[in-house]
């Protein structure tokens, strides 16, 4: 299972990085979203993978590590904020420069 998750993380990172390096704003936003998935999974995995052990306190139950979960929860929400912000920047840049190139200009 660890290998499966590791492959997933690697896949998401690779796709995210590739899209981040594109020249237009929209693929960059998309790449950031994919990269966030990968990084969130990575942070989450630092608490190791446990099945059927949610960190809800009950008598005599086993729990997975709650701390990475709390961190990832905030990371997801911040990721949403960042995506939203980047999209708004992209729209603003489009309105200002009439172009959606990340450098604010057409390629010569």
């Amino acid at each position: 299972m660890e290998a499966v998750v590791a492959i997933a993380i690697g896949m998401l990172t690779a796709c995210g990085v590739f899209l981040l390096l594109r020249a237009r704003t929209f693929p960059v936003v998309l790449g950031l979203t994919l990269l966030s998935y990968g990084v969130n999974l990575f942070l989450f995995a630092s608490g190791r993978l446990r099945l059927d052990a949610p960190p809800l306190i009950q008598a005599g139950a086993a729990y997975t590590d709650p701390l990475p979960q709390a961190l990832v929860l905030t990371a997801i929400v911040i990721g949403f904020g960042m995506t939203a912000y980047l999209l708004m920047l992209a729209l603003r840049a489009l309105a200002e420069s009439g172009d959606d190139h990340v450098d604010g200009r057409m390629k010569p």
């Binding site: 290998a3 590791a6 993380i9 690697g10 896949m11 990172t13 796709c15 990575f42 993978l49």
Partner: peptide, 22 residues
Amino acid sequence: RDAALAVGAGAGLGAASFAMMT
């Protein structure tokens, strides 16, 4: 170039996470 960077980053983080989880 970008594909190479992407594969490098993906392989790196994937390997790092596998090492971490195990």
